[in-house]
Design a protein around this nucleic acid. Structure first.
Lengths: 197, 197
DNA sequence: GCAATACTAGAGCAGTCACTCCAGAAAAGG
DNA sequence: CCTTTTCTGGAGTGACTGCTCTAGTATTGC
């Protein structure tokens, strides 16, 4: 017999490539990033690249799946006896924290513009579905506890919360004077005003 | 002497190309759209294309300038004795109306992800500057009239209004169940809650 | 009619892209 | 040691890109 595969080393290499791709996609967009650029930044040859990912698109899908898993995990850890509104606000803070990595905002912008690729659109749809299904029960519980207005359905409120959050993140990516640290308090205020009964 | 240029015909052809490009960019993104695809949709040859626009990028810039001009015109028509808050809300309605063309939302997504092209970034920056400079005076006047909260600066309120509007438009582009007609009332409510003293 | 020039189409070009292929290095079991 | 298989780099490939060039047509002023 012969050489076996070491899953740890394999995963480590994968992460190096993913990290390099994240940087490149955030800087120059998906279509604007060549596989050669990713290889250069990751310090590998193209042979190695395609040994780990069969296509450039599969690399993008791997990154998206990574983010979806993180969202799933975050909600899986919540326990039902937490205060509903606090969980919602904690998720806001969590997301803003994640976006302190300035690459993420650029990456989100880059990925949002990948159009006409069914697999990518499906992955994005799954990502928002996981997010909505994680958030909506807490909004519903907050409604039941009269913490949140009930004249709009829990689903619509969830969507509107994500609308505000998306707009916030998009602005972070574009406007250097608009920083998460300086605007987080206003974000909380805007959301609270939107949800108040 | 010989043939002179007919500016009307010239402009009409330009608009045909611009319209075709808008459709293509919205469907497959900027980088994902080849000049050949635009030519095919516009029913012209590539020679004609490059007779009207020296580069693919200049076509994109022309479309952006078109939008910026429209924004400028909209605010230029306002007269100072209008009710400040009504002008702000009228702008919201106006934008939502414009977005009833479903291509526009896709186009905005596509253009937002054109990175590392200084001319495009400059055009986008100009577009948002014109928008902010059009909106902010009305917010300031609404503050002076106690129609709008004053604990946040007029500029920050303007930016936050655009944050909500951007998030709204982004959702329109992505979620088929989220329609302008059904959500316009909620948009107005969210903005009013955000601005209320 | 004629000359001059704006306009048009599409073949062709140089460059770039995602991806393939191969030859050899490295690592595991025997 | 040897064998087997994974892992690695980079030259090479065919497809496609934005754009140019040319040859010809349509439309104007005279």
């Amino acid at each position: 017999m012969a050489r076996t595969v070491d899953p740890e080393k394999h995963e480590a290499r994968r992460l190096v490539i993913i990290d390099a791709a994240l940087t490149c996609f955030a800087a120059t967009g998906y279509a604007g990033t060549s596989t050669a650029a990713i290889c250069k930044r990751a310090g590998i040859g193209s042979g190695t690249f395609f040994h780990y990912f069969p296509t450039k698109q599969s690399l993008l899908l791997a990154i998206l799946a990574y983010g979806t898993d993180e969202t799933r995990d975050w909600f899986a850890v919540r326990s039902e006896d937490e205060d509903p509104l606090s969980v919602v606000e904690a998720y806001l803070d969590h997301t803003v924290d994640e976006m302190s990595d300035p690459r993420l905002a650029g990456f989100v912008r880059a990925v949002g513009a990948v159009m006409g690729e069914p697999d990518v659109e499906a992955a994005l749809a799954l990502d928002t579905r996981v997010l909505e299904e994680g958030l909506e029960p807490w909004i519903a519980r907050a409604q039941a506890a009269d913490q949140v207005r009930a004249d709009i359905s829990a689903h619509d409120l969830t969507v509107w919360l994500l609308v505000v959050l998306d707009g916030f993140l998009a602005r972070l990516a574009v406007d250097a004077d608009f920083t998460a640290a300086a605007q987080q308090a206003t974000l909380r205020d805007v959301v609270r005003r939107m949800l108040t009964p």
